[in-house]
Design a protein around this nucleic acid. Structure first.
Lengths: 327, 327
DNA sequence: GGTGCTATTCGGATCGTTCCGGCATAGAGT
DNA sequence: ACTCTATGCCGGAACGATCCGAATAGCACC
């Protein structure tokens, strides 16, 4: 149990006072350049790590941010990627991350965080509003209903949907249908709206079936059959729910047609499995890792007062073209 | 920005000194019962929450524990459940949880935690040993190779495997086979060993195929076909890798046989999907939530010196009998 | 009544950091 | 020469809790 190095040790080695050392390390502009360098050299020579607890105590900050995972873990892998991206960025900025689950909020438990990130909040999720009451800055991934005063990281899902639909047509499809996720999230709503809008613009009739988040394969298969039976001429399917693309491929195969050749398939949420099935499925890469990183970056920026508390940060997403829309 | 309630406020309301208030709340045995109650009443009346930073500073603890997620997220849902269980228990005990990923360990970054939990560590994962170097108590879920001085939460997987195999036989099977996960985790090893041991005891020839963690469906399907072709008389399959049970069912169906009736199926890791497919699949519920909770409980116990640093806590797991082994 | 003991309470001191005001010193302005 | 300001540095004080040793009181016992 060796004793840790404090700022006093650094100050002594640099030949200055505690205060000066602190000012130097925090770039407070109250020290001259030469001494600042001295102190910095001393600090790194000793391997000085500021004591987080003391810092928190003095500055009345927590040194941690929270990430709220939605109640229903649709797209588990997607969320996990986001969390990983966030962890990476947070580690870079020396900030801790605590996961906040909805249960933890009950009983008025207040997690010790300086700000929170809300992932793709459900429309009527009470925990979201509860978090806003925490009185700390909030960043949401995709806009949330009740969150006016929140920073937002948002992707242009409409563009993604249109790009896929245009691609379907370019590959010879005439009637694209949509197996949709419900409109209880911002994403679900925007996907459906974009699809309908595109149909209107192109003078096509929209075909949509919808299933709740977290539906199992059987339900999705039934939805797929229902969708395909809506119209004989459907020759392309946009798949929203996680895992639905594989199910749809199955259903198409069962009906004696060939996925990719007879009926094109594309998924709205990419996922490692989609690249390895036969045929590989075209999908939108929602860039979960960068998404998580952007959220952290924005939140910390807001906390430091460097960025507006309602700034909107665009997130680049990209269609991954694969064989399911090429044959 | 309302001011927070400190222990001084509590003390004032209770009519005692801050020291006494502190002693009362921490059950130090130095205060009389009546005053202890007074203080406690005052604290809860004011809604007092101790300042974590101040506590950390004084007691030289971090007030947080880390959970290390394995590199390859096999069984994603399973791990997530564990994390949730851990979060719950930690919240109950007023302790924070930080996720530790392998990347975060590079560059000598030392997460500010009082102890760490290692989930089902891979045999040759360097991050595990790196964590042990952190010089804080460790609890592993399932024993780890290099971790002698660690608390362990462990389930009797052998019993589970034997129970399933006995059940196969009781339901009329003669030749159970094993679709195995590799022996790079303690769990994988023990499953294979238990299966072989059971076969020896029952005078049966073991049939095993193995695929690496994180194999995709195609690979698993190929493994299943390989396994079934090893011997004509195989009439029951134990499925290790996550998701493999569904694939095996598919393969059996393709071969013209009926899963459940002609070939029994059971999974070693339960998962919500298994209850909803047709037929529902018998599986071992590995109790991930309690597992996470036990890990936290044990780790905190060790930190408080109430439990031995190498204590082994048993974890109850239970076979969920379903139709795939009943027809 | 004096002494010793136990039970209970309390007042600094302390953890490591940042912040506020003060104090030199030096240079510029009058 | 004297004041004024800017610059650079420093010494307390504070954040909110815990811990150690001391103080007080009550009580029993000789």
């Amino acid at each position: 149990m060796k004793k840790a190095i404090t700022i006093v040790d650094v100050a002594r080695l640099a030949g200055v006072s505690r205060t000066t050392a602190s000012d130097a390390l925090n770039n407070n502009g109250r020290v001259s350049e030469p001494t600042r360098m001295m102190v910095e050299r001393a600090a790194s020579a000793l391997g000085y790590r500021p004591n987080a607890a003391a810092q928190s105590l003095r500055t009345a900050t927590k040194g941690a941010i929270g990430i709220h995972l939605p109640e229903v873990m649709t797209r588990i892998d997607y969320y996990l990627q986001i969390v990983y991206g966030a962890l990476e960025e947070a580690a870079r900025q020396q900030i801790n991350v605590t996961l906040i689950t909805s249960q933890r909020l009950f009983g008025g438990h207040r997690p010790p965080v300086d700000g929170v990130i809300l992932l793709d909040p459900l429309a009527h999720d009470t925990s979201a509003t509860q978090l806003m009451d925490l009185d700390v800055p909030v960043v949401t991934l995709e806009p949330a209903d009740g969150a006016d005063q929140a920073g937002v990281v948002s992707a242009d899902h409409e563009a993604g949907v249109r790009e896929l639909l245009d691609h379907f047509v370019a590959q010879g499809a005439s009637t694209p249908a949509l197996l949709a996720s419900p409109r209880s999230t911002n994403w679900g709503t925007r996907v459906q709206t974009a699809y309908r809008q595109w149909c209107r613009e192109h003078g096509k009739r929209p075909f949509v079936t919808e299933r709740t988040f977290g539906s199992d394969s059987a339900t999705l298969a039934e939805a797929a059959r229902e969708l395909l039976s809506l119209d004989e001429s459907i020759d392309a399917v946009l798949c929203g729910p996680d895992g639905s693309a594989l199910v749809v491929m199955d259903v198409i195969q069962d009906s004696g047609r060939s996925p990719g050749a007879d009926v094109q398939i594309a998924a709205l949420v990419d996922n490692p499995a989609l690249a390895y099935v036969d045929p590989p499925v075209t999908a939108i890469d929602l860039a979960p890792r960068p998404a998580g990183a952007h959220c952290v970056e924005l939140l910390l920026g807001i906390l430091r007062g460097e960025r507006a508390p309602d700034e909107v940060v665009p997130l680049e997403i990209e269609v991954q073209y694969r064989a399911s829309t090429r044959d």
